[in-house]
Every structure is written in C-alpha cells, then in structure tokens.
Amino acid sequence: MFSILRSMFLVFIHLFRKKVTLQYPEEKPVLPARWRGRIILTRDPDGGERCVACYLCAAACPVDCIALQAAESADGRRYPEFFRINFSRCIFCGYCEEACPTYAIQLIPDFEMSEYDRRNLVYEKEHLLVDGEGKYKGFNFYKVAGLAITGKGKGEGENEEPPVDVKSLLP
C-alpha cells in the first residue's frame, strides 16, 4: 500500500520537472552525425558515382524496398541504371549502409521528407544521388579494386603489382 502511494507521489513530482520534449518545428533537434535519416548516394573524390550496383543493399534490406539494375559504362565502371528506394516502406534501419562495400549509400541526419502523397516517396536515382562524398571522405573503390577502368589500368591500383608479362619465364 505504501509503495503504491510512494510511486504515485514519485510520478506526481515529475509534474514539476523540465520537459524533455523538443517543440519540433520551432526548435530543431541536434542530430548526431550517424543519425539514420534520409538515404543518399554519394560520389567518390573524383566525382564519379560510388555505387557499383552490387545489389548488396537490396539484399540486406529487410523490407525489400531497394530495387536497382546494374549496367556498365563505356569506361568500364559499373553503375546502377536505375536505383529506386520506396521510402513508404523504408524503416531506416541502416542495413543498406552497413552492407555497402563502396560507401555509396549513406543515411544522413535529415528526416524531413514527409509527403501527402505516397507516390512522392518513391525516390529514383536522380533524387538520391548527391554531388559529394557524404560522411566517408577519400574512399575510391576503383583505386582498391582489381578491375580496370578508363584512367586506371591493370596494376595501377593501390597495392598492386604491374600486370604479369605472360611471355617471361624469369622467376
């Protein structure tokens, strides 16, 4: 009986505490850098699309709201022909970002993306792709991958030997 009264009292005195609620539209919340909000596709330091359309984000997505199609450009880079996120399904879990091997897909601290029409929540590549590196600076996938692209031939990547001369028998 006493504990009931005590808990009622303890709850009651919360009446005089400072409120934790932020009056959102007037007061803006300060979001941490790794807050999982709006999803973007970033570019590498040279301005090329980071996304290589490996489909790992789509596979990691628990609500299956990412659809894309891979293509290859004339210079040998893979890129998504289309990249669609259905934000009316997205749960902002960040698994796509975790799965991304090229830091292309990133969740940024912006959540103001409500719409009155669900159809406007379907984001295509042009809505997702930004002109920047996002949170992870300096990474360029093709510099570390073995694949040759225009401007980076075989053996010109980081930590790579020049291509083997098949006709040589020297040790």
Partner: peptide, 10 residues
C-alpha cells in the same frame, strides 16, 4: 496533458 506532464512531456 496531465499524463504527459507526469512523463515530462507536453
């Protein structure tokens, strides 16, 4: 309102 106050909300 009152419940919110008890829970430090508005």
């Amino acid at each position: 309102r009152l419940l919110a106050f008890f829970q430090e909300r508005y």
